[in-house]
Nucleic acid binder design. Sequence first.
DNA 1: CTGTTAGCGCTTTCAC
DNA 2: GTGAAAGCGCTAACAG
Lengths: 336, 336
Amino acid sequence: LVTIYDVAKRANVSAMTVSRVINNSTLIKETTKRKVLEAIRELDYIPNRSARSLSSKDTKLLSLIITDITNPFFTGIARGAEDRANELGYQVVFSNTDENVDKETDYVRAAVSRGMDGVLLAPAADRSLESIRLLDKYRIPFVLIDREVPAVAADSVVGDNAGAVRLLFEHLFGHGHRRIALLSGPEQVWNTRVREKEYRKRMNEQSLPVDPRWIFRSGLTHRNTAEAARILRNLPEAERPTAVLATNNFLALSLIQSLKAQGMNVPGDISIVCFDDPSPIPDDTAFLTVVAQPAYDFGYNGVQMLLQRIDEPERAPSHLVLPAKLLTRRSVRSLI
Amino acid sequence: LVTIYDVAKRANVSAMTVSRVINNSTLIKETTKRKVLEAIRELDYIPNRSARSLSSKDTKLLSLIITDITNPFFTGIARGAEDRANELGYQVVFSNTDENVDKETDYVRAAVSRGMDGVLLAPAADRSLESIRLLDKYRIPFVLIDREVPAVAADSVVGDNAGAVRLLFEHLFGHGHRRIALLSGPEQVWNTRVREKEYRKRMNEQSLPVDPRWIFRSGLTHRNTAEAARILRNLPEAERPTAVLATNNFLALSLIQSLKAQGMNVPGDISIVCFDDPSPIPDDTAFLTVVAQPAYDFGYNGVQMLLQRIDEPERAPSHLVLPAKLLTRRSVRSLI
DNA sequence: CTGTTAGCGCTTTCAC
DNA sequence: GTGAAAGCGCTAACAG
């Protein structure tokens, strides 16, 4: 193995000088620098990150903690994060919590253990407060993405949830839908609550009744839409929603499957819209009408914000809210 | 910051004993172990990975180098890899090469620099031989996934490419298609060649002509299917393929878009099948008929194999070939 | 079963 | 501009 001392000897300088060169220190004579660079090339020297990290305290490692990279929304975030991290000389470690706060906390411990320079966190639930306390305790800079946590004032990049619900609602309303159901996630997820609240607000605004039997709640990882489908089918025609607004793409897909199993057809018997495109790229063949959030930008800007935080740990928290876009496809039937 | 010495002092033992405890050494008295564990808990001690790595040479870090995590095929691999890595106490750093070998080599250098315990590599092209030489030189265990590299005898987990092409071909043939075009990737990708070869073999076997104008080649990242669509449309009816076999999911999606722009309809005017499901989860609304490779297993088994390699660096290379499954959907029109 | 000593490869700090 | 000394937090190798 070739170390900094081998390079130093070869270039007839001290190890310290080599260190300065690989760290782009400016206080170095051009000629020595050149000499060192040459020695590095000749010996094919690659610095040892563990050693650097041990003495300098930075690792050039970022942690990306999301719930499930399989969901194109999070995949997009991951891609955006990696791109920006790479541009800035960082690498990213990713972890899936599956909406499980205990797993999340383990990952945060790992981040502490590795001395990661920062964490990009999509908190699993309100209980993520635990993870955040750990982060705070060890002074690890972090940025919340996609979801906030109550009582936590931290940097964040989130979607315009209310605006997105509005787009969805107006689309349905515009197509004549009045009885609109909600397929929602766990209540402990900030996101879910905001979306649900806006749904109720819109319904009220139009003086539309919200039948409690129209509100369905499901886990995000363990999706149980079968019961929702059964209930929907068994509702008397006049009380049955003509459309469902799902707060999550995979939930919507799952519901369609469950409805099919019940002999109900989308959009023939019931229309469906949801958050986030289940397709990772533009797709003419896609079926679901969705509000697509700019996942890539969540990740890209998240890392950007994280590095600003690393630079200036004391600045006031910033918040970035990104708008969603309606993609009209074929899962909504016009009632007009 | 709390170090191993703080714990040692608190537990009235030496640092070494603490070290043994956190490393699950068996040669420790139960009572001392308990004492140490308690001190660890009281002080909320979290070991410093950089320090451990510097002296022990292992990092519990794995590198996953793929071309684009955005593609559900690679997303699945990533998820499988992370799951298995997590089970075994490792974390994974992911990197996207965008089919660019230079970028890939940079990432391999980073892996060396970080002393990663192993690398899971989906080589961008035959030129990836460079990256592999680096890996060899620094004795970093690695496993090839999805793609092989000529003249490299290394562990690998790949799909049954020939079998998958056969499934696709037989599906088309069974539905009466005789003029079948090929939309393929860059020739420098091992995968692509195997698939193309099998396509020709099948066509020959059925004594079907392969018109050179039916072979289209596109970049995987920069997809140029517009020209293919134009050519297809301009071909005289009798010489125009009735179906296209695409070797990549995103290529297929892109072609559909391009054909649409040319006023051609899928599957009305032309049928399309391809490799790998563009949907990350089971999706009843999906349009494309595909052969789906078990992406998750690629990643899961890849990590498994990698760790065996780490354990026994000298064993003979193993190769795992995973079968694909035909998912029949709506992109093929029956001609019978 | 437990402790001591040395050192992993780098950077910090302070001289010069 | 450059170098020497010390040490980051841990574990290998040995001793007992």
